[in-house]
Design a protein around this nucleic acid. Structure first.
Length: 508
RNA sequence: GGGAACAUAACUCAGUGGCAGAGUAGCGGCCUGUUAAGCCGCGUGCCGGAUGUUCGAUCCAUCCUGUUCCCGCCA
């Protein structure tokens, strides 16, 4: 008999169903056991009452351990209090396998331990939610482009050229010749766009940069649309529509996941408003605090943030002191003492996190005040700028020297390239990078020489300018950075099932 | 490539130059339509490794290893 999935329970209210899954959590007593089953599609509390199932099944239920696999039959009941809104009154239970000593308990674990157990960590509720959001994002990316007539085409992963020459690549041996793992499908995307008009690539990308930050992976997934006959303005229109579409799809269809992640969607909701578009030079004014927005400069906002954090730390410290005094008083029962000790430990961790944040702010302020006009933005500059506006910002017309060789120079604004970066709010920074491509073959050749790139590997690329040259644009979106932003994650390593990063491990 | 911190029980963390601590998980019992449940009881340690200082080092110093965080590079 086909079994039912937890996500479909609303169609079976009051009916008897059979579910198959694993034990996420258990609470038991003399006559009743609560089993929380997870089946991949959701979580469900099953009630095993000795009066309904008899002694034998009841004892089996009582002996189930975390992550044991089992099949359960029972009646679906509506219960507003439950996660997902339903629970199951069990009548029968079959065990597939008993797990012993599952390492990941429903308590606190450090990141090192969890990463070593990534293959198991993926089962926990939070990771489950993140992966489902990731899936929704991937699906909506395809829907967005397919609905608009884009053709998905794949760029090669092995490439002979060290592409843009800006990043370190992984070198491999390709039948005796040095080959590199692709760091971008961009140049191939242009060739494919001249064949199909509108295309997008969606595949893995590799960077051997020795970056060990919360925003970097060595292996990540990138979406790179390329559009013939599109200029920078049209490119920005696509970026804006695209990001708005994907974010609202998640907001509309992943309500349970957002609940699990406890994601405050205030800033995400703001994607429904028109995105802010500003030229690089104006953005610099805001970063340096020369211009205010809604009566405040970036510098003032950061100083206020710092003060607020310091006050929060003081309040938590006061709470700790009071609880410690209570414990020292010696009149508490053991349970009350434990409760307070747990709270104190939690508060100490919160203070550590806050102090870390507070420690960053002076650096940001310093970096913002000393920002050198003409430079590329650093991570902190992006944070400062987006903190001021609290919504996605597209910064365009960048100094030509800080952007890749294929970026089109603005003929009305010489020295500036028609590139655009989309900066996500809440410190997530650059999510999209793109722009209009240089069509002037002389300028392209000049730039290739200037960057000291080997001309012969770009001959095929220059052919695109020789045959049927047209204005065209595109962009690249880092999937994991988008997942991190939408889910509100502290670190990019949680956005991909098995992250690969510098200094990280190949196991699991 | 640069900088900062951390390493104590299965897990999360306190702590002290002089016999090693708590909470959680686990086990036993009581209670309970519970939901990080509550109450009572019971374990566990090469204090990351090496060398040095010292009567004595988990604690101080040096080195090594591992991990985390920040910056740079980028998506």
């Amino acid at each position: 008999m086909a079994h039912t999935y937890i996500k479909d329970l609303s169609k079976h209210e009051g009916q008897q169903v059979t579910l198959k899954g694993w034990l996420a959590q258990k609470r038991d007593s003399k006559t009743i056991v609560f089993l929380v089953m997870r089946d991949g599609t959701g979580f469900l509390q099953c009630i095993v009452d000795i009066n309904n199932v008899g002694e034998e099944v009841f004892e089996t239920a009582k002996k189930l351990t975390q992550e044991s696999a089992f099949e359960i039959t029972g009646t679906v009941r509506r219960d507003e209090k439950q996660f997902g809104g339903y629970e199951l009154q069990a009548s029968a239970l079959t065990v597939y396998s008993l797990a012993t000593d599952y390492p990941i308990t429903p308590k606190d674990h450090g990141i090192e331990f969890l990463m070593e157990n990534r293959h198991l960590w993926l089962r926990s509720r939070r990771q489950w939610a993140i992966m489902r959001v990731r899936n929704t994002i991937i699906y909506s990316i395809h829907k967005f482009f397919q609905d608009r007539g884009f053709v998905q085409m794949d760029a090669p992963i092995f490439t002979g050229n060290a592409a843009e020459g800006t990043t370190t690549l992984f070198e491999t041996d390709f039948y005796g010749e040095p080959a590199y793992l692709s760091q971008s499908g961009q140049l191939y995307g242009e060739a494919m766009a001249f064949a199909q008009g509108l295309i997008y690539t969606f595949g893995p990308t590799f960077r051997a940069e020795k970056s060990k930050t919360r925003r970097h992976l060595s292996e990540f997934w990138m979406i790179e649309p390329e559009m013939a006959f599109y200029d920078l303005d049209m490119d920005m229109d696509v970026i804006e529509d695209f990001v708005r579409y994907v974010v609202t799809e998640v907001l509309d269809t992943c309500k349970l996941e957002i609940e699990v992640l406890e994601r405050d969607t205030t800033y995400l909701e703001r994607v429904r408003e028109p995105f802010i578009r500003m030229k690089y030079e104006l953005a610099v004014d805001y970063i340096q605090g020369l211009k205010d927005y809604n009566g405040k400069t970036s510098i003032q906002i950061l100083e206020e943030d710092l003060k607020a954090i310091e006050e929060a730390v003081a309040a938590k410290q006061k709470d700790i002191d009071e609880r410690e005094a209570k414990i020292a008083g010696g009149t508490l029962t053991k349970g009350e003492k434990n409760f307070n000790q747990n709270k104190i430990d939690g508060l100490k961790n919160e203070i550590n996190d806050l102090n870390e944040k507070a420690g960053n702010i002076p650096q940001w302020l310093n970096s913002a005040k000393n920002f050198k006009r003409g430079d590329d933005f650093g991570g902190s500059d992006e944070t400062v700028l987006t903190r001021l506006f609290g919504q996605p910002i597209m910064v365009y017309n960048w100094p030509r020297d800080v952007k890749a060789f294929y970026m089109k120079e603005d003929e009305n604004d010489l020295g500036y390239a028609k590139g655009v970066d989309l900066l996500a709010p809440e410190g997530y920074g650059e999510v999209v990078g793109g722009g209009e491509r240089e069509t002037n073959i002389e300028k392209l050749i000049g730039k290739i020489e200037e960057h000291k790139l080997p001309m012969d590997v770009f001959e095929w690329y220059l052919d695109l300018r020789r045959y049927g040259n047209v204005p065209h644009s595109g962009f690249g979106l880092g999937l994991e950075r988008l997942v991190a932003w939408i889910c509100g994650l502290q670190h990019i390593r949680e956005t991909i099932p098995f992250p690969r990063s510098f200094g990280g491990k190949l196991k699991p």
